[in-house]
Amino acid sequence: MKKQHGPAFKAQQIELAQCPTCKGRTVVRGVFHDLACVQCNASGWVDAQTGDALPLELLVTALGSMLHQAMRNLELSRRIELLSGPAAIYQQNNRRGAGGSNYTGD
Rank of each mutant, 00 (worst) to 15 (best):
Gly85Ser: 04
Trp45Asn: 00
Cys37Lys: 03
Glu81Lys: 15
Arg78Met: 06
Pro55Cys: 00
Cys37Asp: 00
Arg78Ser: 13
Ile80Asn: 12
Val60Lys: 06
Gln91Met: 14
Phe32Gly: 09
His68Gln: 15
Leu54Trp: 00
His68Pro: 07
Ser65Leu: 08
Thr61Met: 03
His33Asn: 15
His33Gly: 10
Gly85Ala: 08
Ser65His: 10
Ala36Lys: 15
Gly64Lys: 09
Leu35Thr: 10
Ile80Tyr: 09
Cys40Gly: 08
Arg79Ile: 15
Ser65Gly: 04
Arg72Asn: 02
Val60Cys: 07
His68Ser: 15
Ala48Asp: 04
Asn41Met: 07
Val60Phe: 06
Leu56Trp: 09
Asp34Phe: 09
Gln92Gly: 02
Ile80Cys: 10
Pro86Asn: 03
Leu56Ile: 06
Met71Gly: 14
Ala87His: 09
Pro55Asn: 04
Leu76Met: 07
Leu56Phe: 11
Arg29Met: 14
His33Ala: 15
Ala70Trp: 03
Cys40Lys: 00
Gln91Phe: 11
Arg29Glu: 07
Leu56Thr: 13
His68Phe: 12
Arg29Asp: 12
Val60Trp: 09
Leu83Asp: 07
Asp34Arg: 10
Met71Glu: 14
Asn93Gly: 05
Leu35Pro: 05
Asn94Asp: 08
Glu81Thr: 13
Tyr90Pro: 11
Ala88Pro: 03
Arg78Thr: 05
Ala87Trp: 11
Val60Asp: 13
Ala53Ile: 05
Ala36His: 13
Leu82Met: 10
Ser77Trp: 03
Gln92Val: 04
Glu75Gly: 11
Asp52Ser: 01
Asn94Leu: 01
Leu63Gln: 05
Ala87Ser: 11
His33Tyr: 14
Val31His: 04
His33Thr: 11
Ile80Gln: 15
Ser43Gly: 06
Ala42Phe: 00
Arg79Lys: 14
Cys37Val: 02
Gln69Ser: 11
Asp34Ile: 03
Gly64His: 06
Glu81Ile: 09
Leu74Phe: 10
Asn73Ser: 13
Asp47Met: 01
Leu67Ser: 11
Ala88Asp: 12
Val31Thr: 15
Asn41Cys: 08
Ala42Val: 02
Arg72Thr: 14
Glu57Pro: 05
Ser43Tyr: 02
Ser84Gln: 13
Glu57His: 01
Gly64Asn: 07
Leu56Cys: 14
Ser77Asn: 05
Ala88Trp: 04
Ala87Asn: 12
Asn94Met: 01
Arg79His: 12
Ala42Cys: 02
Leu82Trp: 05
Asp34Asn: 13
Leu74Val: 06
Tyr90Asn: 11
Ile89Asp: 13
Met71Tyr: 09
Trp45Thr: 01
Gln92His: 08
Gly30Pro: 07
Leu82Val: 06
Leu82Phe: 11
Gln92Leu: 12
Gly51Phe: 00
Thr50Phe: 01
Ala87Gly: 12
Ser84Ala: 13
Pro86Arg: 01
Asn41Gln: 12
Gly44Leu: 04
Leu76Pro: 04
Ala88Gln: 07
Val60His: 06
Ala53Gly: 01
Pro86Asp: 07
Ile80Glu: 12
Gly44Ile: 03
Asn94Thr: 08
Gln91Trp: 11
Gly30Tyr: 01
Leu58Pro: 01
Thr61Trp: 08
Gly51Trp: 00
Leu59Trp: 00
Arg78Ala: 11
Gln49Arg: 03
Gln39Val: 06
Tyr90Asp: 15
Asp47Ser: 01
Ser77Lys: 12
Leu56Pro: 08
Met66Gly: 08
Arg79Tyr: 09
Arg79Asn: 14
Ala88Gly: 02
Ser43Lys: 03
Leu63Lys: 10
Met71Ile: 08
Asp52Pro: 02
